[in-house]
């Protein structure tokens, strides 16, 4: 069970990124049927959140330490990349008082940073265990 803690934490954070970016920490709402600039950043974050959730689920189900370490490294780099989607890779709205700046971007930064940190710890732990097994 102890070994699964990092896997479960990673899966929860990935799901939080995918679901949260569409719901409780979504970007600005569309008005008059027009999407604002941040809408595309939100779509990108949701899509990558889904990919991260699938990878995290695969990591939870597999027992091979090497595969787990490889997936953890992939998740860590992808999560770190997500931090730069809102505002850097894809523009947000013009005013920093808007929802995409006050809620969406900080929430994505915090969740992605935690996911990256958890995945790095998981990768190191699995690589150490793999080394001991050999």
């Amino acid at each position: 069970m102890k070994e699964k803690i990092w896997d479960i934490t990673g899966l929860v954070l990935s799901l939080l990124l995918a679901v949260g970016s569409l719901t409780f920490f979504r970007a600005c709402d569309s008005e008059e049927g027009r999407h604002m600039a941040c809408h595309w950043a939100q779509n990108a974050v949701t899509l990558i959140g889904i990919v991260l959730a699938v990878q995290s689920l695969a990591k939870l189900l597999t027992r091979h330490k090497g595969v787990k370490a490889g997936l953890a490294i992939g998740i860590a780099t992808l999560a770190a990349a997500v931090i730069f989607i809102p505002g850097t890779a894809i523009n947000l709205c013009m005013m920093k008082t808007m929802r995409c700046h006050t809620v969406f971007r900080p929430a994505v930064t915090v969740v992605s940073s935690l996911l990256a940190a958890v995945s790095v710890i998981d990768a190191v732990t699995n690589l150490k265990r793999l080394g001991k097994e050999k």
């Binding site: 604002m36 941040c38 523009n91 709205c93 013009m94 005013m95 808007m98």
Partner: peptide, 8 residues
């Protein structure tokens, strides 16, 4: 403004 539904 051009990008967003917000008054400036």
């Amino acid at each position: 403004a051009e990008c967003c539904s917000v008054k400036v």
